[in-house]
Write a protein that binds this DNA or RNA. Sequence first.
DNA 1: TGAATTAGTTAATTAGACTAACAAATGAAA
DNA 2: TTTCATTTGTTAGTCTAATTAACTAATTCA
Lengths: 382, 382
Amino acid sequence: MNKHSQTQIRAHNESLVLETLLLQQPLSRAQLSRRTRLNKVTISEIVSHLMAQQLIVESGSGQSRSGRRPTLLEINAGTRLALAIDLRPDEWVFYAAWLDGSSCGPPLIMPAPVYQRDAFLPALQLALQQFLQQLPERPLAGLCLGIHGNVYENRILFTPYYHLAELDLAGPLQLSLHCPVYLMNEANLCALGDLGLGLAQDNFISISIHSGIGAGLIQNGRLQSGQQGFSGEIGHLIAVPGGKPCPCGNYGCVEQYASERALLDRYRELSGATGASFEQFLNACRADQPAAADCLNQFVAYMAILLNNVCRLTDPAAVVLHSRLATVLPNLLPRIAAAPRCRIPNGQLLQPSQHDLDSTGAGGIYLVLQQFYGVERLKLKR
Amino acid sequence: MNKHSQTQIRAHNESLVLETLLLQQPLSRAQLSRRTRLNKVTISEIVSHLMAQQLIVESGSGQSRSGRRPTLLEINAGTRLALAIDLRPDEWVFYAAWLDGSSCGPPLIMPAPVYQRDAFLPALQLALQQFLQQLPERPLAGLCLGIHGNVYENRILFTPYYHLAELDLAGPLQLSLHCPVYLMNEANLCALGDLGLGLAQDNFISISIHSGIGAGLIQNGRLQSGQQGFSGEIGHLIAVPGGKPCPCGNYGCVEQYASERALLDRYRELSGATGASFEQFLNACRADQPAAADCLNQFVAYMAILLNNVCRLTDPAAVVLHSRLATVLPNLLPRIAAAPRCRIPNGQLLQPSQHDLDSTGAGGIYLVLQQFYGVERLKLKR
DNA sequence: TGAATTAGTTAATTAGACTAACAAATGAAA
DNA sequence: TTTCATTTGTTAGTCTAATTAACTAATTCA
């Protein structure tokens, strides 16, 4: 607990005005006064200050039934760009958004270059330059990198697919882009994305299933990243005591049974299609082929255990699942929720991600804007 | 996020002063000014206000090397009493403390009366009256009841041992005691107790093993009770898919393998001592009898899995274990931490409760004082 | 045209923290 | 004993931010 003083009040209330505008713009001063419960006069002062900083602008006048028409205010979104990159092991996805969170064009997807530790940063710099050339030229509000691995205080501690640990990405990028650069675990970003886009609120858990399984934990509207940034490593919850060995050194981690990689391995084994891709597996699932169906049964069973364990410990209001499987097979989530071992209490929704592949990007943009506006909690207009 | 105004500043800063005094009293105005970084003048104002409310008092003058001697201030602890009761299934334990958290005599332990739903509240009222007669006569700052079951917003939702759900304890007690009454889950109270007594800080998990297994989750110095107060139900994490049936309706809950009840059942079976008490089991453990040792091996193995799962999800800085087993067998915790499946990262301490049976009471007192002083986070002098 | 209504501004008030200056108390040095 | 530096704590006045009250401005409707 720190001391409070007047300047903090003003900073807090300015953030409150920005937050309100971001979610509900355009709004008049009078509307802002009613929604924030700050006095009209205070709002006028804050508004003129924010206008002087070019953070908000007047955008014409609105309608009224009777009485003077309101002057509408909105976020001055076009002055800067926020960037996010999802650095997946196989491909890099580049996102750009304006300061109100609205997208600036579709994401750019490129295959990740062949891994070489020393070449990683230069390749990223180059790709970024190419991406920036496609965008309107604006100063940057910030860049967020989604890392498939463990990150703490902008340092990469561990990556499972290739060795990025302790590679300094933030420093050099910060210098060349002249903007703050943030690193964050990909599953945690997904959770922030769900939070920002209002998919789930306050207390929820966002589970990402790719090659591995990770999660982001939101409690009281805040991401809980744990003491050392390792929270949400649910792929390594033990589902089968003494089960399959895991590269983490343990046995029976759920990741060895319910990740995309585990499912694909099992599908290849059962079907005999040793070279099958995950897309082929998905097709087989859609076609209800026996080998694929068997894999899905296993997936449902282990996800049910995983969800039970996660919900028993944290009691979330909702669980958001980010998985290509859930997208392709709309029947999957109800099956998991109905599985006998998945005792999710009533009212705890299990829902699919609604922006699908782009949660990570949305989360990155969310993080950049949150920092840019100095706001603790942010909701963005959909 | 709410609007901020001056009155909130003052409330916040008064809390800050109280917090500082509770942890480090006695302190002079000058010391308070330095520690809180509030101006001397502000401190003087706040102090005179708090003295007018009789919350703090001057307690003589301190030493100085040169210059005027400081007037020491301390919490006016003797004006009220804070009460806590641990309503265990088998016995009730009554705690009383002064407003600085210091104990007012030893706890009173009495066997719980034979369960009868209608007689529960009258019996409790009677026992409380008897307890109060032993204490100095003071107005009460509050009473906290530790419930072995699920509680949300002062309502009992579920109790495993006898049917207290929806029994209104808080309302009648509040009327007869003329003070606020709080209900809280016992494991959550343990966590608050550990927090208040400084055993662990900010991010930790406190595990209580009795007949069942529960936990309290502290993140960023706050108890996370989940969306409906059900967080920390780690006894029902599934340790063995398709394992032993549990009254909760699921199979293979860790509670069926590592709770006191489960251990005792297994010990009775293995040793043939069908009527053995838990104390006899503990003695057998100390004596290293084979049947007991076998039970302990199982306990260590399942605790290792449980701790791995909990730590992977929440990444705490420490895990505090409240268990009679750990108290009696100092070797047990190192064994758990060293078990192959308990991959607690380095630096994540596994430690026994240091105030043992009284964590629940300490947590109850903590909660009452926290509410009484209107402080978010409280540390008490040991 | 004027009454009612809503938006937004101006001037004065209030609350709270801060600065500067000072009084009070005390140990150490002259 | 006196003086001086040092520390504690108070008093008077200033600054910032939010609020109230009273106003002007703009618009609809009768």
